[in-house]
């Protein structure tokens, strides 16, 4: 998935669509938009960072799951077997992107899986479908004809925490480094 932040307007439609599509309970999120404000009047801007599971190529959650309840599929999506998961919460502790959560209604771990059910039916993930600014683009990065491949071939892009060696598969175009930094803007940490 490519998220083009030149287009993002910070409307939270993706968060809402994800909640509705995947019946995500109150208090937890599979996808959300982090918003920061920076600068001093009159030179001030807002920056957005839509966050979701990065479907890493080397996912720490998969390496550390003790019961093989989560794995990376051939198509690249990292999924969770909800009947296998014992809820040890170790994957929550090892995910560098805060992407996983415990479902408060059925106590198992859940996360974004690129709306696998929609993709297999030939549709786009709910967040992509609903984005009014077409900031989210979904596709197969192995196919050179896809829009995602063209975008990241031509434009400079960023990924979140590349130093973790996870090879995240959500690419951001024109992301702000303060929005990507977990510590920026936290008064208690600086």
């Amino acid at each position: 998935m490519v998220i083009d932040l030149r287009r993002c307007i910070g409307c939270h439609s993706c968060s809402v669509a994800c909640k509705a599509e995947n019946r995500v309970p109150l208090g937890v999120f599979r996808s959300w938009v982090k918003i920061i404000e920076k600068g001093r009047y009159p030179n001030i801007t807002r920056h957005f960072l839509p966050s979701l599971c990065n479907q890493c190529d080397y996912p720490p959650c998969v390496i550390n799951c003790p019961v093989q309840a989560t794995w990376k599929q051939e198509d690249g999506i990292v999924i969770i077997d909800e009947h296998r998961c014992i809820g040890c919460k170790y994957c929550l502790a090892t995910c560098p992107y805060n992407a996983r959560y415990i479902n408060p209604l059925i106590p198992i771990v859940q996360k974004c899986y690129f709306c696998r059910h929609r993709v297999y039916a030939g549709l786009e993930p709910a967040c992509v479908e609903v984005c009014p600014a077409r900031a989210r683009i979904f596709g197969d990065l192995n196919n050179p004809e896809e829009e995602v491949t063209k975008l990241i071939s031509k434009l400079p892009f960023q990924t979140l925490k590349p130093e973790m060696g996870t090879f995240p598969q959500v690419y951001y175009i024109a992301a702000d480094s303060d929005a990507m930094d977990p510590f920026a803007g936290r008064k208690e940490w600086t």
């Binding site: 959300w32 982090k34 918003i35 919460k89 929550l92 805060n98 803007g185």
Partner: peptide, 16 residues
């Protein structure tokens, strides 16, 4: 530079 977080999601601490 002045940076302030307007909105963010943090999931609760899982291991305690």
């Amino acid at each position: 530079m002045d940076v302030s977080i307007i909105y963010n999601v943090e999931h609760e601490i899982s291991l305690g």
